Simulated assay, not measured.
Amino acid sequence: MINHHSNGLLLRCISLCLIGMVCLQSIKLVWQAELIDIQAQVISLLIHLMCFMSASFLAYSTHRTLSRVLLIGGFISFLCTAILLWQADLHIQYFFIVGLFVCLFLFEDSERIAMWVTLCILGGLFLYFQIIHDFTTPINAEFTDDIATVNAIVLVLSFLVCGFWVKRQLTHQNTTTKQELIHTKKVVEAIIPMNMQANISHIANRDKSALNVVEHNYCAVLFVDFAGFTPFSLSMSDAELVSFLHRVYCEFDDIASQLDVTKIKTNGDQYIAAIGIENTKLNAYNISQLACYFSLQLQSTFAKACDNKLRLKIGIASGNVLCGIIGKLRPAFDLWGNSVNLSSRLESSAKGGEIRVCPQTMLYSKQHYAFSEEQKVELKGIGNVTSYKLLGHK
């Protein structure tokens, strides 16, 4: 359905067209001044001219409904009066067809009853004057043919104007729809990794019992948390805290975008990311080393962002993961698997400024990165696990 601005524009355009028709009728009166009902014609023209001018004036105000009533009522009254006063078949009744076409765009979806009543009235009047009504006024044939020709030309022009207007509205609507689709696509691309976007239509219309999950044999999962965040958060207002988190996470996102790292989500002061989900061409060595490099970059960036008032603690675990979208309400992309649990527990066991990694990550990265000696840590729900602290580049 057309919007309010377009509706007002249409009402005003139609009003101006009808004012033009009234002026055309005035020209007819000048040509055929010997008509018996000349006084009635003049009165009709003046009344309808005022009616259409009022409809045009109200079209851009808050009284669009009144404008529409004046327009439709005046249109029907004007045509009926003209036909009955002239009593000659000048093809005036065909303008009811124009009214039928235009009225389809003058009513909202919630006004279907009013629309159908109006359409029935217009259609019935056209059929009556076209089939049943007997035109009896004797007007010379040459004049009748001239006026009928003028009316036919105006009728064609009216349909052309309406057709171009409809085409313009459809083009505008199509452009708006395309822009909304592009915006939606960008939002989806920011939320769902590229290799899962092929299934986006299936995800949007999915069977609620189906799993929309992809398995990856080797990925690195990173859990990033702020050490000492609770005392730090008490020193500022809620708005300042959210602003701080937004600024930090935006910087993390920029680094992730540059390094082909997939951000999964944030949870308060926790930032979760993964490597190897979108770029499946990376091997285990590339994935593990990129995880180490990304972690060190986050530490460096964070130290500058918070002026060393806080420190990061990071857990990295590599291995098999499942990723995708599950559930019915507010679907969101997420990860599952032992590697995810291990990464979370490694982050929890780390101290401020530490980056704890699993043995697999260390083995695939030790050529370029330095690690501490192996350390046995007791992880909640997992047990005694071997881990290493990432010390930096070699």
Rank of each mutant, 00 (worst) to 15 (best):
S77L: 05
C292P: 03
T136Y: 10
F252S: 11
N205C: 10
T266C: 03
M362K: 14
V69T: 11
S343Q: 10
A284G: 03
I203C: 09
D254A: 14
I382R: 03
T144W: 02
E108P: 00
L312K: 01
L296S: 05
A332I: 13
N151W: 09
L282Y: 12
N267Q: 09
C17W: 07
F101G: 01
K167I: 12
L106E: 00
C103I: 09
G276V: 15
T361H: 04
H91E: 04
L322G: 08
V102H: 00
N151Q: 08
F302W: 00
V69A: 05
L391S: 02
F223A: 04
N140M: 02
H183I: 12
A273D: 06
K380V: 07
N283K: 03
C13Y: 10
E278G: 03
V42R: 01
S344I: 04
N212G: 10
N320W: 02
I277M: 12
Y293G: 04
E142K: 11
E111Y: 01
S372G: 13
P359W: 09
G315Q: 04
G99S: 05
Q367E: 01
F226H: 01
L170M: 11
Q258E: 13
K309M: 07
L310C: 13
K281R: 11
L127A: 15
I27V: 14
S372Q: 08
V248Y: 05
A210F: 10
I191C: 08
L79K: 04
C23K: 07
L379H: 10
C13V: 14
K394N: 05
L298G: 05
C23P: 00
T176K: 06
L310I: 09
I200F: 09
K389D: 05
C80A: 15
L24K: 08
G268D: 03
C250D: 15
I153L: 13
L290V: 12
T184R: 07
L346R: 06
Q93Y: 11
H368R: 11
G20E: 04
L241F: 02
V154L: 09
A88C: 02
E278M: 03
F129S: 15
L329C: 11
V117F: 04
Y293S: 13
